[in-house]
Write a protein that binds this DNA or RNA. Structure first.
Lengths: 114, 114
DNA sequence: TCCATGCATATCCGTACACGGATATGTGGC
DNA sequence: GCCACATATCCGTGTACGGATATGCATGGA
């Protein structure tokens, strides 16, 4: 299962959201989803692992899961391909409107098309 | 079907890739995927439409599809949430390297909310 | 050393739905 | 009426997702 498929499941995205705050043990994650059985959560974690989205570390008797930021690189790469065009669109719009105001959110460095 | 599910299919991502270059008529897209039937492509386009990823315009007897950049906003938003942490990680790493501190393997213990 | 904890894995079962082709039909524009 | 599609079915296959259950397996503690 590739990155995009792994991310297509809401539960797995929620798991990643939890892990984005801090690493958590498998059991902790399972308890965060009471409607999911232990093997069920374990399956989700397996998919996330195989997609390279999480990383496991053994600590005592626990398996501590942490987010692997690099695992999101494929999505980021795919998306930036579009972001370039997107921002080009927005830039054109801004230029057209000529509001003269800066982007309030001041997104990360607006990489222009090379 | 939500945005992430719509993007989980490789064919649909390829369609978006084509549309990122220029708008195309439905038939044109269909011909780009010879192994897909006409109703088959039409179904994919429907999913992309309902996910807000493409936009249709009637031109003569053709349906011209174009990418809706805003449709990718949910993915971008979701991803930037992580990109911030990602960059924070890199920053922390830099800070760590600058300060010449302890064990470099304690990476995962360090993810924290800003 | 024996046992409980904390998981991962393996089945089996069942439901649901994605994806595909094939075919038929509907529809708006020319 | 023809073209370019969209939609609707029906069919079939594959597989995701879920629970339930049993087992494997390492670690840490009594």
């Amino acid at each position: 299962m590739d990155t995009f498929e792994a991310l297509s499941d809401p539960t797995r995205r929620q798991v990643l959201d939890l892990l984005s705050r801090q690493p958590r043990a498998a059991g902790e994650l399972g308890r965060a989803f009471p409607s999911t059985s232990q093997p069920g959560m374990s399956r989700h974690l397996r998919i996330l692992r195989e997609a390279g989205l999480v990383h496991v570390r053994k600590q005592d008797r626990h398996r501590v899961y942490a987010l692997r930021w690099e695992g999101l690189a494929p999505v980021d790469a795919w998306l930036s391909k579009y972001r370039n065009f997107w921002e080009a669109e927005l830039d054109s719009l801004e230029a057209f409107l000529d509001s003269g105001k800066a982007d309030p959110k001041s997104r990360q460095a607006r990489s222009r098309r090379p």
